[in-house]
């Protein structure tokens, strides 16, 4: 899966969305370069060295200084755009971060959908994956087990969003969905209610 090196570095630059600022064995937090520039919930991202893949779980936009909460400023403004234009400092006072649940890594060129020995280093760049990468990585579906057991309170939502997004990257989305359903059914064989909830989220 080290095909990404074949992509032009310019293209890769375009897909760079942030930088790791916090890292644990199961997840990491990245800060976005652009305010509101985080990938969508359930999106697949990766770090470069080492190659670690993850799924976006929680996106947060908050003040840089937690002692200075954001105040409402648009009481007299005509539109939301006006608020931003009239307060250009806001972009500097706020920041967007996203938490990524690690879904696998590449070891000696082979995709492994289990946790890497070490989490990504802080300041590793985080890239959004392109459709080929998504299709390639989600040709296996063991990542669903990692996501279901990630401990996130909204793990079902992450799984649903991840499958929906990945399906659109595949040549045969319906086939992919069927495979995903099968994997989910095996993982959640003993909990039909939860399975049903996720299935309804990915139902086309």
């Amino acid at each position: 899966m080290s095909t990404t090196s074949g992509n032009g570095s310019g293209q890769l630059m375009e897909r760079r969305v942030g930088e790791v600022v916090e890292s644990t064995s199961t997840s990491f937090v990245a800060q976005c370069y652009q305010l509101e520039g985080a990938p969508a919930l359930g999106g697949l991202v990766r770090t470069d060295s080492p190659d670690i893949y993850g799924v976006v779980g929680t996106v947060t936009t908050e003040p840089l200084d937690s002692a200075r909460p954001v105040l409402a400023r648009g009481e007299d403004a005509d539109s939301e755009e006006d608020v931003i234009r009239d307060n250009p400092q806001l972009a500097r006072l706020l920041t967007s971060r996203f938490e990524v649940y690690i879904a696998g890594h590449i070891e000696d060129g082979i995709t492994r959908q289990y946790l890497p020995p070490r989490p990504p280093r802080v300041h590793s760049f985080v890239y959004a994956c392109n459709p080929e990468e998504i299709a390639g990585f989600t040709s296996q579906l063991d990542l669903l087990r990692l996501l279901l057991n990630s401990g996130a309170s909204h793990a079902d939502e992450i799984v649903g969003a991840c499958i929906r997004q990945a399906a659109s990257s595949h040549d045969q989305p319906n086939y992919f969905l069927a495979q995903a359903c099968r994997t989910l059914s095996v993982e959640l064989a003993a909990d039909v209610a939860r399975l049903n909830a996720i299935l309804r989220r990915i139902s086309p």
Partner: peptide, 23 residues
């Protein structure tokens, strides 16, 4: 065993097909 008591969307072919043959 709880499946019997779980309300399932019998009119949603996608969910039903996914459950059939697995769960």
């Amino acid at each position: 065993p709880r499946m019997k008591y779980t309300p399932l969307p019998s009119d949603d072919p996608f969910v039903i097909q996914a459950l059939q043959g697995t769960v």
